[in-house]
């Protein structure tokens, strides 16, 4: 069936806004600035956490090795978390956006899968390290308390941890994963459009 409608003609008659170089330069400027801002923000957070650990170490002069280990593990948890999240953002910069649509989509699906795995592993690691770190850190101070006060302190902290581990952690992971799963399935859907049609000929 051939059509009498000239689609090409119609397509090109669509009024188009004029190219606006000034507007584009503005966008470029904003883009560069937001990249720099992001870099500064990440580094400020990293420097601030490092300074904080130094301050606690110096000011409170912990005597027990457990306290020092606790501080290191807690801060390490935050640093690793930040580092991996930055790495994840960098993953996307590695996709070659000048490759053809089929390859691009496949790469995108792989990367989203990697992101899914990283997020899951990272959340678990982050919570586990934070809990271990804080328990170790507390030991020096609770050991100076009476037995009952010490037990109560640990009981309250551990209850809080259990709540975190069994409620907050799965909820956070589920929320993150749901968003990613949705995206992956949409990308898969488009990819399927391509694959399904390869049997056309």
């Amino acid at each position: 069936m051939s059509s009498n409608i000239n689609f090409k003609d119609l397509w090109k008659q669509q009024p188009v806004i004029e190219p606006d170089m000034k507007d584009l330069v503005n966008r470029l400027h904003q883009f560069k600035q937001s990249n720099i801002r992001r870099l500064i923000m990440t580094n400020i957070l990293l420097i601030a956490t490092s300074l904080f650990i130094g301050f606690v170490w110096y000011y409170y002069q912990p005597k027990f090795i457990t306290t020092k280990m606790g501080i290191v593990i807690t801060v390490l948890a935050m640093v690793i978390y930040l580092f991996v999240y930055n790495k994840m953002a960098a993953l996307f910069n590695k996709i070659d956006n000048t490759s053809d649509n089929t390859h691009y989509l496949q790469k995108l699906i792989i990367i989203k899968g990697k992101q899914r795995f990283l997020q899951h592993t990272m959340m678990n690691l982050y919570f586990a390290m934070l809990m271990t770190g804080i328990c170790l850190y507390m030991y020096e101070y609770t050991s100076r308390m009476t037995m009952t006060a010490g037990i109560i302190t640990y009981a309250v902290t551990l209850t809080w941890f259990i709540f975190n581990w069994f409620y907050i952690r799965p909820k956070t992971i589920k929320k993150q994963q749901a968003k990613l799963d949705d995206l992956i399935s949409k990308f898969d859907g488009i990819n399927k459009q391509i694959l399904d049609d390869s049997h056309l000929l």
Partner: peptide, 22 residues
């Protein structure tokens, strides 16, 4: 080359899409 599909495939697809649009 833009989409990563074969030329023959593109030809068929274009035909079908135009038919659908008509």
């Amino acid at each position: 080359s833009i989409t990563g599909l074969s030329e023959a495939n593109i030809r068929v697809k274009i035909h079908r899409i135009k038919e659908k649009l008509s």
